[in-house]
Nucleic acid binder design. Sequence first.
RNA 1: GGAGAGGUGGCUGAGUGGUUGAAAGCGGCGGUCUUGAAAACCGUUAAGGGGCGACCCUUCUAGAGUUCGAAUCUCUACCUCUCCGCCA
Length: 423
Amino acid sequence: MFDIKLIRDDRQTVEKGLQAKGAAIDLGPVLKYDTERRKLLTQLEELRGQKNAANDEISLALKEKKDPKKKIASMKTIAHKIDALEPKVKKVQAQISDILIGIPNLPHPSVPVGGAEKNKEVRRWGELARFDFTPKTHIEIAQALDIIDFERGAKIAGSHFILYKKQGARLVRALFNFMLDVHTSEHGYTEVFPPVLVNRAAMTGTGQLPKMAEDMYFLPDDDLYLIPTAEVPVTNIHREEILNEEQLPVKYAAYSACFRREAGSYGKDTKGLVRVHQFDKVELVKFVKPADSYGELEKLVADAEKIFQLLELPYRVMLLASGDLSFAAAKCYDIEAHAAGMNKWLEVSSCSNFEDFQARRAGIKFKDKATKRAAYVHTLNGSGVALPRTIVALLENYQTKEGTVRIPKVLQPYMGGAEVIRK
RNA sequence: GGAGAGGUGGCUGAGUGGUUGAAAGCGGCGGUCUUGAAAACCGUUAAGGGGCGACCCUUCUAGAGUUCGAAUCUCUACCUCUCCGCCA
């Protein structure tokens, strides 16, 4: 929920931020409703005060064995006035919430203003793979090695659903185990394994609802959604909670399957692993003190990068421009791995600082010792990392002339000691 | 799926129509005592909204209702627990 106070106090900054994000929202109406709400609320509270006072008098009269009839009658009059006013207040409050819930987070000042063309490469790691033969795409490699069956995946569920086989299936298991191990034992994250179905409140809390409804699988009989990322259940672990300042930062690493309808992206990446409806991902989620959140964002990106460094896969880190940011994000880095077969940079991780945007919607606070008040935490999350595109990079970068695929050192223990994937 | 019992502050838990925003305990914070700590004792300690402020209003899972008045009564939804059934 966007902070109405910020709109009230600094309308220009909000408008500028929204414009940078490409969200054309007229703040006039919400401010008008806000003024009206406060006017009505003052009246309502005045009446409620009268009612409470009358009630005290009645209760006192009863105690003193006096007749409260007259007082009851006057309280009745007040109650009628309140009944008339209450729906008006509720209505205007609902109008305000409807607008606020649809306002995206503002970009951080360090974010370049503009569309995707303004995305900025901030660093690059590793050497691009070079071959003395023409490298194949992961589709050709996987089919030749019989480790992915695209046709039968489609037969079972539909196109863009993947059936991994043999060392392909093992590779999936190897990768998320490896990633979880790195993040829990080296980066200090607590492992969680969340539900992949969540309710409406959870989806609203992290900001997927109301805007992203058409991109999610929904089970109407149970009013439940399949998660598009573990960010949703994991961030909602602490929904409507007040955390202790000492326990911050809280850091979770979660493996989950993720489900995306990818509505509207038909015709894009129609083949292979680049865009699929169900995929696996290890997600990192942090709850931090507001003052620490930008430092924590840099660490989060570094934690995700570490996976590619260990896998020895070349990548670059992109700072997203304002127009390319998601609804809830204030600042975001994408990690893009290079896939040699397709000769493309593939987005494999997205690390974002949401500041207090999600915390506000989900009611996640901490007890601030300095002020002795409950304040919103800042939430962050990043993929650490998404599997299918990492598999694309692995297959395409580690392919050999013979058609086999070398397994990076760190993964070999997870692959039963195998050094190569062969048919 | 069937039967029953519940959902109260950071936690446990009292409260069955009117000074109850809510007893008590635990935990937290401050103090006395102590070289320091523990123990003991004293005090303090919910969140949100409005107002410059004294202060006022809201909130006992959520929504609807009964009543002059609801944590307390009624209905609905959701959730939890116990027993039975089914089941990986």
